[in-house]
Simulated scan of single mutants.
Amino acid sequence: MPRSAELPYHHVADVLADPAVPAVYEAILADPRPSRRRLVEAGHEPEAVDIALTVLHVRDVIDATDPEAIEVAPPDVAIPAYAALLERQARSLRLATAGLAQTYHRVRTPLIGEDSGLIRRLGSFDEVTGVVEKLEESVRHSLYAVVAGGPRMERIVAGGHSAIHPSESGPSVEALAVIDASIFELDGAASEFSRRQSFGYDIRVGHDVPFNLLVVDRESAVIDTSNTDPECAGSVFVRDPTLVRALIHLFLLMHEAGMPLPSSATATGASGLSERDRLILTLLAAGTSDTVIARQAGVSQRTVERRIRAFMDQLGASTRFQTGVQAVRAGLI
């Protein structure tokens, strides 16, 4: 190989588009006994010949191990083979792009905990509460809430947090909420969420809700972990569009899977059941105990047990769980 064979491979790549390379290649094809000396004698610059021989050798279109006795592969075989190699390299490069981009953005994006403008760690209960209240005050189009529990939820149920009135926030504010069944262990939970329904909230009851969540106007969100950590460790304020969309998708799945909380606005409903009976069935289907159901419905535990037994007989169910499932299927809740 000529001395240019000692050039680093990245330098070879830099000269792939050098017009001297195809010119030298054409001269090699036209010469029955090509060599470096004959190429130079034909008028090609020595340095250009050295670079071209190195590049063509790397491409496997010639064998320039001995530059004075160059072996040439048929171009109709060598060039398609080289093109296939380039295609494989291009595919590998495209596959590597995502990982490279992730590395690039990871080292240039502020860590969570710094105010990047897209994601910010919330370091205390007071900070979470302050951000949530500011978001609620700014709502224009939609408000999605997940209530899993924790001190802020206890404050809400105790009446220490004013409910947003969707009808007053704008002409078409969409207010949806999912509350965990465990919230009903708090005295007054049923009446508080019934009050919020009267303001225009569409409330569903879920089970094993993982964390508290608030999404406002599909633009900003707060993940509140106070239900698992009183210090709110891991709570974040989010404005990153991709993450907000993912949280919205998760919320809508939870809302669709939840059971509607009975509303006093439709006290008898299509089922003919009273609001109290529908509340009993809803909390039953959510897995709450008779004691909790009695406290929320404002009746004795014996009354709850009697109503559940009547529903079991009516629906042909043999267990409490089956009663809840059959009530949903029958459209009673």
Rank of each mutant, 00 (worst) to 15 (best):
V173W: 09
R278A: 04
S264R: 13
G272R: 03
P171F: 14
Y201F: 14
E275H: 07
G150Q: 08
P151L: 04
L250P: 01
A233V: 05
G149E: 02
A221H: 02
R278F: 02
I156W: 07
A181S: 11
R196W: 07
D217R: 00
V216E: 12
I179G: 02
L214Y: 15
V238L: 10
H207E: 13
A189K: 02
E231H: 09
T228L: 05
N227W: 00
V173P: 02
A270H: 05
L214A: 15
D180K: 05
H161A: 14
E275K: 03
I223V: 09
L243D: 11
S194M: 07
I156V: 01
S220L: 04
S191Y: 05
L273R: 08
S264W: 12
L252F: 13
T266S: 15
P151I: 01
I164E: 10
P151D: 00
V215R: 03
P151E: 04
E154G: 07
V244A: 12
V222F: 03
R276K: 13
P171Q: 13
G150K: 00
D187C: 09
F184M: 00
V236T: 06
L243M: 10
S198T: 07
E185F: 12
V236G: 08
D224M: 04
P171H: 15
E275Y: 01
V157C: 09
S220G: 04
D229G: 11
V238M: 01
H249F: 12
P210R: 14
Q197V: 02
D229C: 00
I179A: 08
R155M: 08
P262A: 06
I248Y: 14
P166L: 03
S198E: 15
G206V: 00
T266C: 15
V236Q: 08
L243R: 14
E219M: 14
F184K: 04
L213E: 00
V222Y: 10
M259D: 11
A190R: 07
F211K: 10
G200I: 08
S271E: 06
P171I: 01
N227C: 10
L243T: 12
T266R: 15
T266P: 03
L250K: 15
I179L: 08
E168V: 07
D224A: 04
S167Q: 10
R276E: 10
T242M: 04
A233G: 04
I156R: 01
